[in-house]
């Protein structure tokens, strides 16, 4: 079975590396990291991820900007995006899944457990979310 390709975009190298270590240690994930958000599109075109994890607050291009660029790109516009953000709080989230739907899409509040991240990715890819 081929691995699920995840593109993690976050300005903090420690954050993407940590996600990579944790998700990859689960076995079925391959994670590529982007820390300079202006490189997002180029990396995505090369890596062809199944799903993108996108930090909201970043210098230069923020999460919203990157999402827009992805949408404008014919080859990338169908790739599902999950936002990760430290801006919302847990009590904003509905009780069963730790998510918030905002205008931009689904938000996962930080700090987030790898378990939650994994389940969000799986549910998104299977079309539940």
């Amino acid at each position: 079975m081929s691995k699920i390709k995840v593109l993690a975009i976050d300005d903090e190298p420690g954050a993407t590396r940590m996600m990579k270590i944790n998700l990859e240690s689960l076995g079925q994930y391959q994670v590529e990291m982007v820390n300079d958000s202006t490189q997002s599109i180029a990396t995505a075109l090369r890596f062809r991820p199944d799903i993108i994890l996108l930090d909201m607050v970043m210098p230069n291009l923020d999460g919203g900007d990157v999402k827009r660029l992805l949408q404008e790109n014919e080859e990338l516009k169908d790739i599902p995006v999950l936002f990760l953000t430290a801006l919302v709080s847990d009590s904003d989230t509905s009780s069963d899944v730790s998510l918030v739907e905002s205008g931009d899409g689904i938000m996962i509040p930080k700090p987030v457990k790898t378990e939650v991240l994994r389940s969000c990715i799986e549910q998104t890819l299977s079309g539940v979310l």
Binding site: M18, A86, K113
Partner: peptide
């Protein structure tokens, strides 16, 4: 708090996932 929260939650996120990793490995 909203301002500080953002700055604090990112490191918390790292610590959380770091501890998780150690727990698992």
């Amino acid at each position: 708090a909203a301002g500080v929260a953002h700055e604090v939650k990112n490191p918390l996120n790292l610590i959380l996932q770091g501890v998780e990793y150690l727990d698992r490995t």
